[in-house]
Design a protein around this nucleic acid. Structure first.
Length: 103
DNA sequence: CTTCTGACA
DNA sequence: TGTCAGAA
């Protein structure tokens, strides 16, 4: 199966800001506030992955919903927790719900 | 073009 | 929360 989004692409801050519909300065602000932590090149330049860009879009949407940066940080944290829990459940289900294990 | 910090509305 | 200054 083909994967819709190849999470292999990386962007500079200017491109990431453009894709997310944000100002470059705001991306740096969000990082200072602890909402995002993009990877860095050996030279220190931020390198935003497509996952980071998607995260930025979520940040913008939550901001438009009226949340402040502190609230958004909690939302992103909880979303990650839910994602992790669902993964664990999926794995547990996969391990026990086999085709009639030792009846 | 990019980085950072401090300050301010 | 976002923007600006200033230095690197």
């Amino acid at each position: 199966m083909a994967m819709p989004q190849s999470h292999l692409a990386v962007f500079t801050i200017s491109v990431a800001a453009d894709l997310a519909g944000m100002q470059i300065q705001n991306l740096r602000v969000y990082e200072r506030r602890g909402l995002i932590e993009p990877a860095r090149t050996s030279g220190g330049t931020r390198r935003y992955s497509s996952a980071d860009v998607e995260c930025l879009v979520r940040i913008r949407e939550l901001l438009e919903e009226g949340l402040n940066l502190a609230g958004i940080e909690r939302v992103l944290e909880l979303e990650q927790e839910v994602r992790d829990l669902r993964r664990r459940v999926s794995e547990a289900s996969e391990a026990s719900a086999g085709p009639l294990r030792n009846a």
